[in-house]
Design a protein around this nucleic acid. Sequence first.
DNA 1: CAGTAATCGTTTGCCAAGCTAACTACCACC
DNA 2: GGTGGTAGTTAGCTTGGCAAACGATTACTG
Lengths: 145, 145
Amino acid sequence: MAERGTVDPRELAVALRDAITRLNRRVRQARPVGDLTVAQLSALTSLELAGTLTPGELADQERVRPPTMTKIIARLAERDLVERRPHPTDGRQAIIAATAEGRAVYARFAQVRDEWLTGRLVELTEGERETLGAAAAILRRVARD
Amino acid sequence: MAERGTVDPRELAVALRDAITRLNRRVRQARPVGDLTVAQLSALTSLELAGTLTPGELADQERVRPPTMTKIIARLAERDLVERRPHPTDGRQAIIAATAEGRAVYARFAQVRDEWLTGRLVELTEGERETLGAAAAILRRVARD
DNA sequence: CAGTAATCGTTTGCCAAGCTAACTACCACC
DNA sequence: GGTGGTAGTTAGCTTGGCAAACGATTACTG
């Protein structure tokens, strides 16, 4: 628990990075076998939310460098979960969109995806979940450049 | 959104995984050039805290499979940041300990390590930091199998 | 309007982190 | 003293991540 009144940002950074590193490994580890990786599903999620995005926009949203996103898109495209369309006005850019199959796969795995984590969260108290919910919002802001 | 007074564990899982994935990428991205990776520094930290550990204990603490820890140790050992000693009673096990240089490197980078994150955290309000502090403790427990 | 500068995306090449499966070496136990 | 379990490594593979360099295209500017 935090002490009353002050939380040293430096100590907090250590504690947070530590917790996040470990939890991230767990989540990654608990992914359904033979299926989409966390990075791939995350990109697909961004596409679901946005409809279509350019590779650059996707890279930004996923907090990843362009070459990395090129790879992730390539892997999704290999399985026809995503398709590449020409940009209407700018020949440099491309438009990435989920295919029908991509959306179907997304819907199917969106339920299962965070199964493990959900299971752990159920065991917490309501107050703890509220704390985590608030923290998630703050962390999202912190991560957003 | 969740109703007042209740946080849906499923939605929370999504929000948390999302925030953690992005933040993790940011932290990884912000590491000091040419130096230890997050995983290596994390292992070194575990050693600092515990004194000495066997590879298996290290793997447990880092939430990683044994072969993965073998690699991380190998990389640290290559740079003489860590040394391998025979276990006094059990010939199968080994004792891993930070070398003097390893401890020096650790001390040097422990300060710099979470610089970026610390910088972001100071910009938050005290209340937000308290929330994150509490969340870190909860997350640590959640990750701990 | 021609030439230069900026932008977008990919390619190339590299390395770290992760896993499973299989193997070796050792301990423990009956 | 063999048999089964445990610790760690090796081998082999995949993904994710980066920077640097490059081609194509757009935008600016004189």
